[in-house]
Design a protein around this nucleic acid. Sequence first.
RNA 1: GUGGGUGUAGCUCAGUUGGUUAGAGCGCCAGGUUGUGGCCCUGGAGGCCGUGGGUUCAAGUCCCAUCACCCACCCCA
Length: 421
Amino acid sequence: MSEFAAPRGMRDFYPEDWRAREALFSTWRQTAERYGFEGWDSPVVETMELLERKAGEEISEQIYGFEDKSGRRLALRPELTPSLARMIIARQGSLVFPLKWSAIGQCFRYERMTRGRKREHYQWNLDIVGEESIMAEAEVIGAAVCALRSLGLNETQFKVRVGSRAVLSELFAKSGIGKEHFMACCLALDKRGKITEEDVASLLTGEGLTPVDIERVFELLAIRSIDHVAERLGDDSPAIGQLRELFALADTLGFGDYLTFDLGVIRGLGYYTGIVFEAFDTAGKFRAIFGGGRYDSLLKVLGGERMPSVGLGFGDVVVQELLADLGIVPGGNRKIDYAIGYMTADCRALAMQAAMKIRAKGHSCDLGLSPEKAKKFFGRADKLGAEKAIYIGPSEAESEKFNVKTMAGGETAEKTIDQLI
RNA sequence: GUGGGUGUAGCUCAGUUGGUUAGAGCGCCAGGUUGUGGCCCUGGAGGCCGUGGGUUCAAGUCCCAUCACCCACCCCA
């Protein structure tokens, strides 16, 4: 074994890994195109200021930061959204909104590794910027669901949990719990099902909540349906209306079966303002497959005009692990249209002619790099996943005819060079 | 960051209370078939037993340290 390995948390892609990755990227790109998103890209390196400003000071320890030779503070991007916001703000006056943008980018994060989490990964971002209506959420989620379905997953294998920070906020206000406790309550809700109620309670006590408050939080923990929320907030609550609208739109768009209401989805970080969502495998074995939400104030925070926006991040690691667990291999096995081999150097010229003819017609063709025995060649053609194999020996070189063998069935057909394709 | 587990061939793993030359399956290479793959048979190559120290007549095996990976917790895009 070599003393060198990829740096911790960084991944090598050998050809089979690369095939799976490209198949996933291809699904992402096709889906984005199908839903009318435009592609974009930006540098992997960003200024530290942009990333810090959005994330806050604390997270900077998780950023791969460095100084360039003139002392500029730079960093490998941990996600795509700050770059997106930067690009949009730079042309906010000339871009036509709403816009729908899609990107696949490599992102870095310095942190402890666990399953489904590396220090480097690719993330598919879908964003709709400049749209107030819930149609933005519906289209973004619908596209991500579509991508997962294209990969071979169905509604028994994953669900999208939908929550709303606006609803939570209203609930807490209604229950008389101070705004300063909002994040602590969110964290407690997030722990639901993971730790005991006593532990949740002590957690909240530690945050300075009174026993009465804690009791109220536990009441909120019990809420499992939008109707129950509506009973508390009243039907005129705008946040409730938005949630109901999203579920209705999802039904009409045909992915309602994938959505479930879950107040516990809060997406930790501060910039989400409305509906938030996360997709999980039904078996509960993996981390979130994708997640996102509405962030109406991010552009303003970064110095632009306020602009209602919805975004989604979809990483490559968890979905590949989930697919592998279900026996699905994106990209499948190695495949090539033709393999060509030859017995001696004298036969090579004809083999080259055939290869160039096939390639000119747009088919893939592996041409043997050196003479090889028939047995070795056909074994190699098999491993290449060749659909057809052509082996050229002295008699073919003499007659200028090709025996084209179909690998699957084993039958051969004799062809001239003009009949090859 | 805390706790537990695992490091032996390219891969998955055996390896007895410490005892001679460290094994299997798969993969790879060659031959069986000097012009035809998959199946079968035969043979072959390939090991600093993670790394460093220690105990011992003797260490893959026991002890200590260290590194890497896995799982759970913690934290969280």
